[in-house]
Amino acid sequence: MAHAPATLESSSAAGAVFTEGLWKQNPVFVQVLGMCPTLAVTNSVRNAVAMGAATLFVLVCSNVLISLVRKLVPKQVRIATYILIIATFVTIVQLTMKAYLPSLDRSLGIFVPLIVVNCIILARAEAYASKNKVIRSAIDGLVMGLGFTLALCLLSVIRELLGSNKILGLNAVPGFKPMTVFILAPGGFFTIAFVMAAVTTIRNRKGTRKA
């Protein structure tokens, strides 16, 4: 589990929190959490950004509320309470999306309600928000949400480019014949396999240099 630095007084500490969430403890590539939405919605950049934003919102809101009630909730029922809080915010997202962005709601399908069971959110609630003050929990939610969004964007750019030769629906490289398999299920598995291998390699190289 990620442990953000204890103090946020200096700006370098705040910077450390960001590198922690975006790179060192990236929820997708390093902690390997939230795999289902990661693979399911990254077939286009538009879906990935929308899912990232929705998860970010739920993550920040649930972290704040869980941090606020952390001393009121008995230990035995905490998980159930967290799930209920998360489900409430997910329902807000779901209804808002249905009302204002119906086409997006259709293309994300059941993965909008399934944000409830995204392990990143429950993991942050249990590992961070239940033990820390409100502002820190909010920042933690924001950073982890950004790390998730970043990972989704990276995967979706690769998949949309290779799979349909488009970025955000616009034509990309002229004359390149797209490989449809990349926007289908197998492509999702292949893309994350090689991105994860690359991330691990870079991390290991940095580690040996420091040592």
Partner: peptide, 19 residues
């Protein structure tokens, strides 16, 4: 290869199964 050990190769296998 070291980079593929563990999860990455599991993802590749899952991809082939999905295919």
């Amino acid at each position: 290869p070291k980079a593929l050990q563990g999860l990455p190769v599991a993802f590749v296998s899952a991809g082939l199964m999905a295919l």
